[in-house]
Design a protein around this nucleic acid. Sequence first.
DNA 1: AAGACGAAAGTGGTTGA
DNA 2: TCAACAACTTTCGTCTT
Length: 309
Amino acid sequence: MEVISGEKIKECPECGAESIKWDKKKGEISCENCGFLMEENMIDFSQEWREFDSDKAEDKRRVGSPLTHTKYDKGLSTKVGKRGDFRGLSPGKRKEVHKMRKWQRRISTPIERNLKLAMGELRRASSFLNIPNNVKEEAGMIYRKAAEKGLVRGRSMESVVAGALYAACRRAHVPRTLDEVSEAFEVGKKEIGKTYRFICRQLDIRILPTSPIEYVHRFASELDLTPETTSRSVEIIKEAVDEGITSGKGPMGIAAAALYISALLEEEKKTQREVADVAGVTEVTIRNRYKELLEKLNLKEEMKEAKKE
DNA sequence: AAGACGAAAGTGGTTGA
DNA sequence: TCAACAACTTTCGTCTT
């Protein structure tokens, strides 16, 4: 997994280790040691481009607000002024300005209007789901490409935006569950899944299977678990992966089971229902995964000991 | 009474002929 | 295109705490 980690390392308020890192990619400040999450949804201050070599650098430098894909015109719109701006212009100039404004109105083709609507939806849902900016941008780009290819036809705009956002999240390793995306858009998750797969195939977007670890921290913070418990579940998952018992299984189920187990071991028991709810799986799935984990990882004795105390 | 457990039947998606 | 298949869900009855 590609990880771009920040430079500013500070002391963690939870575990005390000097391992607080700023993960620009996820937009999170968290502790590498215990997984403590300091701040979600932060602003990405990094440059929007990189200078690969000095030749190209000049081309990419520019002034102004960052290019954004979440505005329908990529934030480049130049508005032709209204009344107030006419003062002091010659009649000839005035006529010209009128012409420009007329032209501007005509630019608003149905496609542009659709994009404008879609980007509004994207911004709304992104803030609801705490999506970091860079991921939102990518989602915008995906939607734009999909629209250009005419993939929106026959589908609701919302479902395509939702699919694009879901895809962008997974690409950036900041997964949101289908349930969460579904809630944000009020579109059935079945449909989102469908359009998501469709646009991925059409746009040739390759997405690797999600690792359960990518869900652990978010679920853990929703469950108010201690950093110790959280890192313990990460360990469990790593072992499970080594044992090869995770392939083909749903990552959310594994994350949920690992969290459930480590919560028991660390004496801050959560019910299966509680864990199941935040992970978006059922108790049955947790039970199945957790049975397998106990079996293969020789955790049975530990569990018995934990129960006695 | 609540939580944990597990059997059985159903759903939606993938795969391979 | 269809059937087999695995993962997951829903539902429900039975234990355990």
